[in-house]
């Protein structure tokens, strides 16, 4: 039996969608892990949020000052800023200008 182009196309698509994506995510997460280990060998802590995620956390803290978890959110927010200010190497893509503009909440 000769396979049709449609069957071959679906086979290729399925392999790319599943094995391609699984391999990409495995390689990406293992590389990120390698980078984190490398950074933590040189300094005792590092940034914990990306610029986008930290901005969203800050907005939430300001919008929900009475939330039962706001203290925990503040601690996590400020901890990230401290790490950004006091360390040289960063995991996320932070520019110096972005770090200068950051304020604790």
């Amino acid at each position: 039996m000769v396979l049709t182009a449609e069957v071959i196309g679906m086979l290729v698509f399925t392999l790319a969608a599943f094995w391609g994506l699984a391999t990409w995510s495995l390689v990406r997460t293992m590389r990120q892990e390698g980078r984190k280990v490398e950074i933590l060998e040189q300094q005792d802590r590092m940034d914990t949020y990306s610029p986008e995620a930290l901005a969203e956390l800050r907005e939430w803290i300001q919008a929900n000052p009475d939330d039962p978890l706001v203290d925990d959110a503040r601690r996590r927010h400020n901890e990230c800023i401290e790490a950004l200010e006091e360390t040289d190497r960063r995991f996320y893509d932070w520019s110096n200008e972005e770090i200068d503009r950051l304020e604790r909440v």
Binding site: T14, F18, W19, L21, A22, S25, R28, T29, Q32, M46
Partner: peptide
């Protein structure tokens, strides 16, 4: 310092399904 969404979400769901495909 471990990640959650990439490993625990994307890789787990797609990776385990990939074994079904295999």
């Amino acid at each position: 310092y471990d990640d959650v969404p990439l490993g625990g979400g994307v890789f787990t769901a797609i990776g385990e399904s990939s074994i079904g495909i295999l």
